Simulated assay, not measured.
Amino acid sequence: MTSSVSCLTITAFTLERYVAICHPLRAQTMSSLHRAVKTIVVIWVVSCAAALPYPIHTRIYYYVQHPVTLQPVQDSLICNIEVGAADVITS
Rank of each mutant, 00 (worst) to 15 (best):
S3M: 05
R59N: 08
Y54A: 10
C48A: 13
L52R: 04
Y18T: 03
Y62K: 04
Q71M: 15
I56H: 01
I60F: 08
R35N: 06
T69A: 07
T11C: 07
I78L: 09
Y62E: 06
M1Y: 11
A50V: 15
T2A: 05
I81K: 01
A27D: 04
V41F: 03
A27R: 00
V19K: 02
I78T: 12
V46M: 14
S3D: 12
T69K: 11
M1L: 13
I40W: 08
V45N: 06
A12D: 07
S6A: 13
Y62R: 03
I21Y: 05
R26A: 14
T2K: 07
Y54M: 06
T90C: 08
K38M: 13
M1A: 13
T11F: 12
H34F: 10
A49Q: 08
A50M: 15
R35T: 06
I10G: 00
T58N: 11
F13T: 08
A12Q: 05
H23R: 10
L33K: 13
V46I: 15
A27W: 00
Y61I: 02
T14I: 02
H66W: 05
V45H: 10
Q74E: 14
T29P: 00
P55R: 01
R17P: 00
N80I: 02
E16Y: 02
E82C: 00
Y63A: 12
T58K: 14
I60A: 12
A49E: 07
K38L: 12
S91Y: 07
S91T: 06
W44P: 00
T29W: 02
H23S: 07
F13G: 08
S6L: 13
T58S: 14
S3N: 09
L70T: 09
S6V: 06
S4R: 04
V83E: 09
H57V: 09
C48L: 12
V42P: 00
P55W: 01
P67C: 04
S3T: 11
A12G: 05
A36I: 05
I43P: 01
A20S: 15
I43H: 01
H66V: 02
I81Q: 03
T9M: 06
I89T: 13
V46A: 15
Q28N: 14
M30Q: 12
D75H: 13
A49L: 15
W44F: 06
T29N: 04
L25T: 10
T2F: 05
P53M: 02
Y18V: 09
T14D: 08
T90L: 11
A27F: 05
Y18F: 08
R26G: 03
P72M: 03
Y18W: 07
S76A: 07
T14G: 03
L70W: 07
V46W: 10
R59V: 10
T9Y: 09
V5F: 07
R17G: 00
R35V: 06
N80M: 14
V83T: 07
Q28H: 14
